[in-house]
Write a protein that binds this DNA or RNA. Structure first.
Lengths: 197, 197, 197, 197
DNA sequence: CATGAATGAGCCTTCATTCAT
DNA sequence: AATGAATGAAGGCTCATTCAT
């Protein structure tokens, strides 16, 4: 089945080339023509590989999350297993790729907005798409965090993710966001304390 | 004499009736026709009161933030002035109006997306609009928080707002978001500890 | 009948205050609101004095042509009655008010364009409006010219007017139109020669 | 392979089919929808070939002027090279296509009006568009005239064009314009005399 | 498989005119 | 007489998607 492999492979490649454009322009504002142009194919071909704009996005997002988690784990596996070091490692990683994650958050949100008002989406569809893909990815991320920190308290992983999202959000509309480091300090202390209870 | 209408008053009324629709449908997806219909006026009349869709949004946002801060302060002024109680009060308030604030966050973000790609906006314009209105409102909110908590550390107010935003964000794409209370607990402990340093 | 006099007088005043705006912005692009604002009255009042935008224009044009002819005749009545001097006088006058006449031509043309496609205008209407008002005013102008030059050849007056219109036209889209004087020279020679035949 | 279409060729065809409609209805009043309908394509397709209404017009005008000059030169190349004959040839040609040229003038002017009030156009833009396209085309026409007449005096070519424009203008709002021939006579005499100096 | 021309509903905004006050 | 709020059709333009080639 060589052809099938090729297709999958090609799709992945297209997907990863798409990210930049989604990040720069946003899900809502990007046009299929722009996307096709960037990928140096025609719109027709684009539709040959993906059934819709939405499908491209959904596949892109899933791909990225997997990649990011893997990427982090490879980079941070040798960090000492005490809580403080590992929470720091997570936040350092976030900080290091701050702009990238901001962009990723942006496109998630953008997509979310576009879906919001679609009234003609049947409930079944919804349960398999949009909102819930985020839920699933969120859960996976939290589990990865907790696993990495070797703790069982779901709320703590959730707290960390919540906080990171909040941080990225602030950075989004405060380009000169100053208190990143200070806030990270607070978080680390908080987590260390909580996990000792 | 023309029909007597208090323009300012009427504008405020239109604005507050707009909120619901913006929240339901989103800034990007709402159409001026829908908005006019909902307000039971013609598009022409809508444009008689507001110069553009963007202007409606900007005025709406500013209005809301002021109103919410005021609203909170009235409701929470008699809370004992110790940190724990007051942080709790803030989070209770947020929790109480959780859906409302989620919607508000939604429309902020939606608007933010729409602006993102507008490259032909001169720098002067930008510094007086879009992004920076969020910066300004954020700052005002943080100051209100710190003032209410009677603390001077800007980072702490920032941390709380960051966290709240993160929380609202999580709720956004996890409709059944479970760990709200648990996370709030963690936050309160963290803040209490930090402020004792 | 003092009221009637007032109305007429007021209308004339409004009309003359309108010219500038028509000239600056053009018949097609000017809005009734702008016009009302400039005249410091409300749109309602404007409609109280004139039944429509078109009516304002038509009355304005007629007013202006009369005024300009009168104005010229007063200024140029003492010029010696030989052809060369008098043709020169006409062209000097045109030259002196070159910008003004350019603007006037502009608004004539602008109005003309707006009418062109109106298919639902019955023939009777047409014969009393638009095109024909220009015909009438043109004839009046030519007659005034010929009368002033004391000649009977209608074609010569026509030729002069044609030429002046052409000149103004060139100036319109050639802001740095250079050969005005040279062309005027040619015209004068031509007229002198013709009239001697 | 996509549907094979020679874009350039197709554009030219669309352009020439557009002329009639522009002439009948005018630049300002024509709508893209009308235009598309007349060309029997959708508005989307129209925008597929031309970026804007203005672009259509600009390309149309340039095309027409080139075509007309060429057309004239072919038809009139064997006219004897004395001034009188050749000036006559030019005016005969104009006369012959009198209605066509009137329409062309009409749409030029109409476009000119629409541009007039656009103040937010940066100076660089202006110097490359609108007004100046007329300047350029005017210059080309004058040069073609002088070249055809084998004279070097720019003012004379200018005079002829001025006069022709004036003539067309008169005809515009005097549908029964009578003195065309008489005025042409005068012009020819004038030119002959001038060129002998 | 690939192409890109074609579609048309829908978007934000404008403006002459009307009419309640 | 005077006001200005209200109307709504219409304008230029966009873009996800389809389909003949």
């Amino acid at each position: 089945m060589p052809k099938i492999v090729d297709r999958k492979q090609y799709r992945k490649q297209l997907l990863s080339e798409s990210f930049e454009l989604f990040a720069e322009i946003g899900y809502g504002k990007i046009t299929m023509r722009q996307l096709a142009q960037k990928l140096r194919i025609s719109t027709g071909t684009l539709y040959h590989y993906f059934p819709s704009k939405e499908a491209i996005f959904l596949q892109l997002v899933e791909e990225l999350v997997q990649r990011d988690i893997t990427h982090f784990l490879i980079q941070a596996e040798s960090v000492p297993p005490d809580i403080r070091s590992r929470v720091s490692a997570i936040l350092d990683f976030t900080q290091e790729h701050r702009d990238y994650f901001s962009k990723q958050l942006t496109i998630w949100l953008d997509y979310y907005q576009q879906q919001a008002g679609e009234e003609d989406v049947s409930k079944e569809d919804l349960s398999q798409r949009s909102t819930t893909i985020f839920e699933k990815l969120d859960r996976e991320t939290i589990e990865a965090i907790n696993n990495y920190l070797q703790i069982n308290n779901y709320a703590i992983g959730g707290f960390i993710l919540t906080f990171i999202n909040g941080l990225l959000l602030c950075q989004l509309y405060q380009p000169n966001f100053k208190s990143w480091d200070a806030q990270v300090e607070i978080l680390i202390e908080a987590i260390v304390l909580m996990s000792n209870k």
